[in-house]
Design a protein around this nucleic acid. Structure first.
Lengths: 203, 203
DNA sequence: CTCCAGAGGTTGACACTGTCTACCAAGCCG
DNA sequence: CGGCTTGGTAGACAGTGTCAACCTCTGGAG
């Protein structure tokens, strides 16, 4: 019944949407296929016609988060200066984590469905890392691929670590001044650039 | 019955131990108080005499992980040179994450019980961060407390980010050479020191 | 046109979970 | 003795994932 004639159209799609809504409200643990079905006004087994198991619907949700993330990184502003370009990439990364904490948490802060069994889930993630490596390869003074790999890993560590920490609100509990938080992004991106060899500004 | 006369002694203690064992085998999701009780040969309600809910037993397990972590950091080698001291701290941190991946994951890679409702859980974490700030404050050229806060946050981000990434085995899926992984720790710690102003070695 | 296979939906059952309630046995203390 | 607390038991309930059987359209193949 209902005005939703979405029936024939896309129950699968509606499931994914509702799943995200449920996770948004109550955390990933609270996701239950029966709840999804209930909200959609269908039987508790209907979702199983589209997803073999709870893990699979979760993998789908996470996969979409990765896709949105990769798209966001692609849309970042570009620059001629390689250091600025790296800065843009980092800012864009932290931007996404701040604006879409739920998606970020799904991607990196949750016990994920085994990636080995859901390979499509990780495809987008690889692309994002490749972008980072390209950007770093353009910095002056890079020699071997090994250097690039190591510095890409370093850079990723920093932004990922900062994003995670800012999300846990650990800051509130660790006695940091509020100002520290708002300045953290700029400061951290600056430190990355210095670590990677940009001449230090010494005013 | 059984040879376990631990009965009078410490069912509570045994619960925590079994809980950790269960999590170790099947992940945090698989923890069930009924399973704990079953393994201990007691009724399914016995654990509830010692823990008000599943969340509380989890909080206890996590709290112990934090304690063990803080203790590990305390035992790190010390040094006169402040940069070496910082390096030791970072190495010690990454060491722990590598040797006790389960504990590390419990602390930082899992949706935790709400810290606001389990304050004792976080007490040890604060101490660890304070140690980091002290170490950084000893570096030459630090000015204000604000600088120290920001650089502490930066440093924490790096090590935490690297530890997280190395644990997800994302490396395997992102096309990094195996060598990159083993070199990552040393390289990253070096980059931190450079970012914080240690003169770059240019061989 | 008929037929029938399959996609997508249904109901019912099962084993499992966390948690509530009531009950019981021992120990302690007035 | 009587009563209170502590730590255990048993039973029930709602909620979960998932398996199995069944129903009902709908789109082709013959």
């Amino acid at each position: 019944m209902k005005a939703r004639d979405s029936k024939t159209a896309d129950l699968r799609e509606a499931c994914v949407k509702q799943a995200l809504a449920i996770i948004a409200k109550g955390g990933v643990d609270s996701l239950s296929l029966r709840d999804v079905a209930r909200r959609l006004g269908v039987s508790h087994q209907a979702p199983y016609k589209h997803f073999p198991s709870r893990e699979h619907i979760l993998a789908e949700v996470v996969g979409r988060a990765y896709a949105g993330f990769a798209e966001h990184l692609e849309k970042r502003p570009r620059s001629e200066d390689p250091y600025m370009d790296l800065g843009n990439l980092g800012r864009s990364y932290l931007d996404y984590a701040r604006k879409h904490p739920l998606h970020y948490q799904l991607m990196f802060g949750t016990p994920l469905p085994d990636p080995a069994e859901h390979p499509e889930m990780m495809a987008k993630a690889e692309h994002a890392f490749a972008t980072l490596k390209e950007t770093i390869a353009r910095l002056p003074g890079r020699k071997s691929d090994a250097d690039v790999d190591l510095d890409a890993l370093f850079t990723w560590s920093v932004v990922h670590g900062l994003a995670s920490i800012l999300q846990t609100r650990a800051t509130e509990q660790l006695g940091l001044r509020k100002a520290a938080i708002s300045e953290a992004t700029a400061h951290t991106l600056g430190r990355i650039a210095e670590a990677l060899g940009r001449p230090h500004p010494r005013p």
